[in-house]
Design a protein around this nucleic acid. Structure first.
Length: 579
RNA sequence: UGGGGAAUUGUGUAACGGCAGCACCUACGACUCUGACUCGUAUUGUCUAGGUUCGAAUCCUAGUUCCCCAGCCA
């Protein structure tokens, strides 16, 4: 599988320089997820950066689960993440690792540092610690425990491990610089007490290393050359280097951390916290609801790994904050599926058409190509009968200009079948069209002499009696578009301005986020499909002619077979009408 | 008010002192038994102000705007 990435990017430039200068002899990367949730499209950028950077320079990539916080992590996520990475087509040739397997080494380094006066046990409460840390503009103060004897710290640390103290009673801190303008360097925590069962180490430990301590150690122990991560860790790089430097007596390598900007997508939620809120609040049916940006959801919806990798290759890698247009992802999906998805006819919003001059019992089995560009994919039969369904939007009693579908007096072609002429329609009391009447030009059967004359419109159709009902699920983004979201938030502000002048808190942020949810993100339609789709397998994708790509869903609780709309076809007519 | 980053067309990303390119989006056209695909055409850009230079997106100076950081999360 290819990911036609850009020719180069700033990371590869840096890697090449490192190789040329001899700083590193080979390239070894790692992908380090925390197993506290499912992977989403945002993670793919890191996945591709890690795996392709190594591959490009003949190196390998490790998969390492950064499982240093047992309160949040579960085996379910470990399994899910591995399945998602495999699905995308990546292979952790460097090996599978867990940060938790380095707990012994971390512990040894901690003891070493205590002995060397580089770490100390601090008994400040969390609250006190916050005050001692200072602020963004004011330096912090040294902890009163900072200069306690090494032996005392060591003893306390051993007793922390032995489970003699309750959670929060004390922590182990690095001794760096409480006056540093970089807050991360103000004696950061290394170890905290946590009486949580770990998904891999069970109850072996009741103290756990912090990310800033364990991560560089894991990298170095694995011989990672380039440790790629997102921009918010730039401030942590001095700390990363400090850890590696001071533990170098116990570490085999000196990795280099390089940061790049995260992926943001328009109208897409890319925060694990908010995604969890959607799942737990019942706004979606689960982590794999096809509207979610998780890989398991995209897989279920019918996105292909090829299209996702193509997408990631096209967006590039840089350090500037950016928001990629969802349209680019959709383009990649269409491009991939367009070349390989078999074609079929299905009517999503049916309107009955009666072919008045077609004999009641007549059936005509027509040969339909499975793919216009791939004759080797063969054909299937579609049966034409007196009563058929067409798409509601394909008939208008009073058409606008440039409408070349069905309207009274107009001729259109039924795809792969005959040319028909619309003679009129039938409406109910409220004026809704309930049926359309057409006459068939019996000489215009597909392939015959009379079929060669040109008519402007070609419609997809299914027989009313020989098709199968199905459920179409049409998806739109989970978030409103920008202008709607702004309007929704503005309307909300007007109301709350009167009630309160409270500053923005995390709880208002939460409600703000929920206010910008797109209420129309799921539409369910009962349509009819060609009977040849009855054997479609779960995960199989078709192009429903003129409608879009649809993937057979696994939902077995629904009464009808379910097809997810992966993405619609481009529709220049719809755009024209809107404008 | 401290520290760390970033600014190139509507969006994303190239150009590493020498013609601002590519993709998506948008618009128009050709083709069409999918208003799809394909093909063609077009619009729009170097944050600002100075400076260096034959020549600046690129180098220098000053400014502006945006993002990140005060977890015993990662």
């Amino acid at each position: 599988m290819d990911t036609p990435a850009a020719k180069t990017n700033f990371i590869w430039d840096a890697v090449e320089q490192d190789l040329r200068s001899g700083r590193y002899q080979s390239v070894h990367t790692r992908f380090p997820p925390e197993p506290n949730g499912y992977l989403h499209i945002g993670h793919c950028k890191a996945l591709v950066a890690d795996f392709l950077t190594a591959e490009k320079y003949g190196g390998v990539t490790n998969l390492r689960f950064d499982d240093t916080n047992p309160a949040k992590e579960e085996t379910e996520y470990v399994d899910g993440i591995m399945a998602d990475i495999r699905w995308l087509g990546f292979d952790w040739k460097g090996g599978l690792f867990f940060a938790s397997q380095y707990y012994d080494q971390c512990y040894a380094i901690a003891e070493d540092w205590i002995n060397r006066g580089l770490a100390y046990v601090c008994e400040l409460t969390a609250e006190e610690l916050r005050t001692y840390r200072g602020t963004l503009v004011e330096p912090g103060k040294n902890s009163p425990y900072r200069d306690r004897p090494c032996a005392e710290s060591l003893d306390l640390f051993h007793r922390m491990r032995a489970g003699e103290f309750p959670e929060g009673r004390m922590i182990l801190r690095m001794k760096i610089d409480m006056a540093s303008p970089n807050i991360n360097m103000r004696d950061p925590a290394m170890y905290r007490i946590l009486y949580k069962e770990h998904h891999r180490t069970g109850k072996t430990w009741c103290i756990y290393p912090m990310y800033d301590f364990a991560h560089p150690i894991g990298d170095a122990l694995e011989g990672i050359s380039h440790s790629l991560c997102s921009l918010e860790y730039e401030d942590h790089r001095p700390l990363y280097d400090w850890v590696v430097e001071h533990a170098s007596n116990l570490l085999p390598a000196r990795p280099r951390q390089i940061e790049f900007s995260r992926l943001n997508l328009t109208r897409t939620i890319m925060s694990k916290r908010y995604l969890r809120m959607l799942v737990e609040g019942g706004y979606v049916t689960g982590w794999d609801d096809p509207r979610m940006p998780t890989l398991c959801a995209m897989r279920r919806r019918g996105y292909t790994p090829e299209s996702i990798r193509d997408f990631i290759g096209r967006i590039g890698v840089a350090k500037a904050d950016s928001v990629v247009d969802l349209a680019l992802l959709e383009h990649c999906v269409r491009e991939d599926l367009g070349g390989k998805a078999p074609r079929a006819m299905a009517v999503v919003r049916p309107l009955k058409v009666i072919l008045t001059n077609w004999p009641e019992e007549k059936r005509d089995a027509l040969e339909m190509e499975n793919h216009p560009d791939h004759p080797e994919l063969g054909t299937h039969q579609a049966v034409l009968t007196r009563e058929i369904y067409i798409e509601q939007e394909d008939f208008m009693e009073e058409p606008p200009k440039k409408y070349f579908r069905m309207f009274p007096g107009n001729e259109v072609r039924l795809k792969g079948a005959y040319i028909v002429k619309c003679e009129g329609c039938e409406k109910d009391e409220s004026g809704i069209v309930t049926a359309v009447y057409c006459t068939v030009d019996m000489d215009s059967r597909n392939g015959s002499e009379g079929a060669s004359r040109k008519v402007k419109g070609t419609l997809h159709w299914v027989s009313a009696t020989e098709s199968l009902p199905f459920e179409a699920r049409l998806y739109e983004p989970l978030l409103m578009d920008e202008s709607d979201a702004e309007a929704a938030l503005a309307a909300d502000t007007e109301e709350s301005d009167i009630a309160s002048t409270a500053p923005t808190s995390s709880s208002t942020l939460k409600t703000d986020f929920l206010k910008t949810l797109n209420r129309g993100s799921l539409e369910t339609c009962c349509g009819y499909m060609e009977s040849y789709l009855a054997t479609a397998q779960e995960g199989e994708t078709f192009q429903f002619l003129r409608m879009g790509y649809y993937c057979k869903d696994r939902d077995s609780t629904a009464e009808l077979p379910v097809f997810n709309r992966v993405v619609g076809l481009r529709d220049s007519f719809a755009k024209q009408v809107k404008a």
